[in-house]
Design a protein around this nucleic acid. Structure first.
Lengths: 224, 224
DNA sequence: GCGAGATTGTGAACGGTTTCACAAATCACG
DNA sequence: CGTGATTTGTGAAACCGTTCACAATCTCGC
């Protein structure tokens, strides 16, 4: 284990391994080999071992990995070993789906507060929470101390919300708005774009490669 | 432009360029250089040009790219130039957010039918649609002819739904359930996992590298 | 206690994407 | 029409992540 920076894909897979391990744990399985993890995760055994090697040595040669042990380790790595409060901004459809999302709990992720700028919504209940005024976000997070925030507002408001989240002390933002966010260097952003995902699928869904080369260039005329 | 397979990351970025171009178009801008696209998308100019080069030549040296022209080309590439019907399975929170998602329209993506297996829900309105029995999905899609499907059901039901979608003729699946789906080779799956995204952010949100090496291996004892 | 069998951790090879750098193309303007 | 400034498209180089292959480690049964 050399002191390299951990690749993002590795971190993403870590969350997958964790899910597999939690399932196995629930099923009462005590030990799993990298081979078996491959079967359950679809990720190659070699990849799994390499991923873990960034963080240390967690298995026993000839045996495999202790399920409860590895769960603990991965949770520690991902900082999911203690409750991780999250600020949600945007009490619309997506926000609603998120507060109702049942799987957060198992990973100790908890939406600790919801904000919106719509005066009609402020004060109304939202899941177990009450919608608060976005203007008070900094003040509220002084209590909560959340480092994670979710942006579930329309694109045109997203940058402003991002600025507020950063000011409130958030260093990780999950962004559902289809916009590029400008944030300070120490803040991490991950974008979730349904459109992007569907666009990629749309491309693949039709296999005939209808190339549009020459035409395309000519199409440019109307713009110049 | 050689006849290479297009990298997935390129396709993902194509959707981003398209968004930037649509914004520019709305603002009345007629021409954009790769440099300007970089400014608006956060993706390097060289990357942009390389991405487009997989599909042909769309720009004019010394000038840049015609905004309306390039919009058309990218839409054609991504098969977003004509309406793309989508089957949604799962009339829960996430499904609800999706039918209410306003940005699909601009990309000609349309959720054409919603399915669920809950008898209480079947027949009820859902957005502009009526929830239909999942058992009839194949029959219904014989009419619609959708090639894209969205899985927004609990993890334990996801594989079964995937099988039904494939049988109904879908070749691209957007999966919101936290499970690995097994599908035939010709079917493409893209997973959206809030947990995974938040886990990655959670890792980065705390910068102190608390390594847990030796301990971890020992922690394994309780499992073996 | 020892040999057979299993599985890990990791350096090295590989393959694919991104970045670089520059020739070719286009336009503006005198 | 020719020169200079601009920008594209793309081969080559650099970079990064994945796959491979094997020595080191551990367990089990005799």
């Amino acid at each position: 284990m050399t002191e390299t920076r951990v690749p993002i894909p590795t971190l993403e897979r870590l969350a997958i391994y964790l899910r597999v391990l939690l399932d196995a744990h629930e099923a009462g399985i005590q030990t799993l080999s990298s081979q078996e993890i491959e079967q359950h995760s679809g990720i190659s055994a070699a990849q799994f071992r390499k991923d873990l090697s960034y963080f240390g040595e967690f298995g026993k040669p000839g045996v495999g990995y202790s399920v409860p042990g590895l769960i603990q380790c991965i949770e520690r790595i991902l900082r999911l070993d203690e409750e991780q409060p999250i600020l949600l901004v945007g009490a619309g459809n997506i926000g609603s789906a998120l507060v109702g999302y049942p799987n957060f709990q198992a990973h100790r992720l908890r939406i600790a507060a919801v904000f919106d700028n719509n005066f009609v919504k402020i004060g109304r209940p939202f899941g177990d929470l009450v919608i608060q005024d976005i203007a008070r976000i900094k003040e509220v997070n002084a209590e909560i101390g959340a480092r994670l925030g979710i942006i579930a507002v329309p694109a045109h408001a997203a940058q402003e919300v991002a600025d507020l989240l950063v000011e409130a002390g958030v260093t990780g933002i999950l962004n559902f708005a289809p916009t590029i966010l400008r944030v300070p260097k120490h803040v991490h952003v991950r974008n979730v774009s349904f459109l992007q995902e569907l666009a990629v699928l749309s491309y693949h869904a039709t296999e005939d490669a209808l190339c549009v080369n020459g035409q395309a260039t000519r199409g440019g005329k109307d713009g110049v």
